[in-house]
């Protein structure tokens, strides 16, 4: 596992202009995300998580500061930074399979090859029987899984996920968490994973970040219990560990200390 810097954020500030007045969404973030890290980002609603993700994705330019990925300044969206949106962004004129194949298709990958890849991830997210359906014929959670399959099929180096499992039932959620961990362990992708669940933030990744709102700042940045993809321990054992519960408590505290805490605990 190489430890070169995947993402470098320097002096990042972002303002939104809302009818003449400035909304200070991100105050000052300086941080490095190393290649292969699985970073979980938690924080109360409206603290700037999505804003940070959109800046990393290249959907907008920061008001101040710079973001570099692999030594290159982020200026526009790119296939190397896949995005799972908070609201599924599927195309209703394509069926589920064609949505999932879209990335490889745009790059000119042959039909057979991209179909196989798409089928693999559709099976992984449990949608292999729904390939011929249109996205609007799926439930919200199924749409979200389809979106995840589409991003993974495109095989980006960095995966930016905005509350990807928020709309899923507990069982599906747990299964997909494990699948995501397996993919991470197998490929060493860099993952930024936004979540509202303290448990998920502590359990899932190799590093936990907590942001506070107005202006958005990083108030907690700690390694999670297992910082290497190689380590694989049963979930029940992790949850029984005192370190796990201590970290969980610290994360919860960090979120609660922020001004609009009520909305965030979960």
């Amino acid at each position: 596992m190489s430890h070169d810097q995947a993402v470098e954020i320097e002096g990042l500030r972002h303002y939104f202009n809302v009818r003449g007045s400035l909304v200070h969404a991100i105050d000052r973030i300086d941080m490095t995300i190393e290649a292969g890290q699985f970073v979980c980002l938690a924080g109360p609603s409206g603290c700037g998580k999505t804003t940070l993700l959109r800046l990393l994705a290249g959907f907008m330019r920061p008001s101040e500061g710079t973001i570099t990925v692999g030594g290159e300044r982020v200026r526009r969206p790119s296939a190397e930074r896949g995005v799972v949106f908070q609201q599924p962004m599927l195309y209703p004129w394509l069926n589920v399979r064609k949505n999932v194949e879209l990335g490889p298709k745009l790059r000119g990958v042959g039909a057979k090859e991209r179909r196989a890849e798409a089928e693999r991830y559709l099976t992984m997210v449990g949608l292999s029987d729904f390939g011929d359906r249109r996205p609007y014929e799926l439930s919200g959670g199924m749409q979200q899984r389809c979106q995840i399959a589409r991003v993974l099929t495109n095989d980006p180096d960095i995966v930016l996920m905005d509350e990807p499992f928020g709309a899923l039932d507990a069982l599906t959620r747990e299964r997909l968490q494990n699948e995501l961990l397996d993919i991470w362990r197998a490929t060493g992708k860099t993952i930024l994973f936004i979540t509202h669940s303290v448990d998920e933030a502590v359990f899932l990744g190799s590093r936990v970040l907590v942001m506070s709102p107005r202006p958005g700042r990083v108030v907690l940045d700690e390694p999670a219990l297992f910082s290497e993809p190689g380590e694989q321990i049963a979930a029940e054992r992790i949850r029984a560990m005192p370190e796990y519960n201590r970290l969980r408590e610290r994360v919860r505290q960090a979120i609660q200390e922020t001004p609009t805490a009520a909305a965030a605990t979960g």
Binding site: A57, F59, S78, V83, F85, M89, L106, N154
Partner: peptide, 15 residues
């Protein structure tokens, strides 16, 4: 057209 529909396809590598 929703901005994010375009963003999504650009993130998939579209020109």
């Amino acid at each position: 057209v929703r901005e994010d529909q375009v963003n999504a396809v650009l993130s998939l590598g579209a020109s």
